[in-house]
Computed example of a mutant assay.
Amino acid sequence: MRGPHWLALFALILAAWAALYAMSIPADLRAAGRVYGADFWADLCNLTPDAAGFVRMTLMWALMSASMMAPTALPAFATYEDLSHTGAETRIPALVAGYLVIWLGFSVMAAGLQLALLRNGLLDPFGSSASAALSAGLLAVAGAYQFTPLKEACLSKCRAPMMFFLQHFEEGAFRNGVRLGAVCLGCCWALMLLGFVGGVMNLGFMALATVLMVLEKLPDIGRWLTRPLGVALLAGAAWVAITGI
Rank of each mutant, 00 (worst) to 15 (best):
F126Y: 15
R91P: 00
A130Y: 01
D82C: 09
N120T: 15
A111M: 02
Q114I: 03
S156R: 13
V55W: 09
A160D: 14
R91H: 12
T58C: 06
L83R: 01
R91L: 01
M60A: 12
I102H: 04
A130K: 08
A52F: 05
V101A: 15
L123Q: 03
A97F: 11
F54V: 12
V108K: 05
A133M: 12
V101M: 14
A116D: 01
C154W: 03
G121R: 12
N120M: 09
T58F: 13
L113Q: 09
G121F: 10
A110G: 11
G143K: 12
K151Y: 06
L95W: 06
V108C: 06
S129D: 11
R159A: 15
A160L: 06
T148L: 06
A70W: 09
P75M: 02
C158V: 03
G87K: 02
L74E: 02
K151W: 08
A78Q: 08
E152K: 15
A97P: 07
R91Q: 11
K157N: 04
T72N: 08
G137I: 05
G105Q: 03
L118V: 13
F106N: 10
L95M: 07
A52V: 11
A136Y: 03
T90F: 11
A70V: 15
L150N: 06
F126T: 15
R159I: 10
M57K: 08
M64H: 02
T86D: 09
S128P: 07
Y145L: 07
H85F: 14
E152Y: 09
L83K: 01
T90C: 10
H85E: 15
T79R: 09
Y99C: 02
P125E: 09
G53Q: 06
S65K: 00
L74F: 06
Q114R: 07
A51S: 09
Y80A: 06
A144M: 05
S84R: 13
M109S: 14
E89D: 05
T90E: 00
W103M: 02
L113F: 07
S84E: 02
S135E: 12
F147T: 00
V108D: 07
E81M: 03
R56G: 05
A116R: 07
